[in-house]
């Protein structure tokens, strides 16, 4: 891929991503969704974020799937810190430090 192709790709994806946000926001502002759909939609981000975290923890290697202990420790310590401190930066620092220390020990 040449430099120009890369720039074109970035611009195209930027436009598509922006439109997906804009259309989502505008459609949701206009359309009156039923309470059931609204409740359902509330749980979509939770499900997807859970899936993303779990996939990060599970590392496939040679046909088998392993659980990464450092990533598990990092994710859990970050989550626990967030629960008690409600501070995202603090949770990220604690999570990273715990993960790095675990990686040194394991």
């Amino acid at each position: 891929m040449t430099m120009n192709d890369t720039i074109l790709l970035i611009i195209t994806l930027a436009i598509i991503t922006y439109l997906s946000r804009l259309i989502g926001l505008e459609v949701m502002t206009k359309i009156h969704v039923t309470p059931a759909i609204k409740t359902y939609l509330q749980f979509v981000p939770i499900s997807i974020i859970t899936a993303l975290v779990v996939i990060q923890i599970m590392t496939p290697e040679g046909g088998l799937t392993y659980v990464s202990i450092p990533i598990t420790v990092a994710a859990i310590s970050s989550g626990v810190t967030m629960f008690f401190s409600k501070s995202l930066p603090f949770a990220l620092i604690i999570g990273m430090v715990c993960g790095i220390v675990t990686r040194m020990l394991v």
Partner: peptide, 18 residues
């Protein structure tokens, strides 16, 4: 440098928040 941990760490915190 543990930079690969940044993604799961961020999303775990966001998950707890939600």
């Amino acid at each position: 440098y543990g930079l690969d941990l940044a993604f799961p760490v961020t999303f775990a915190a966001l998950l707890v928040q939600s």
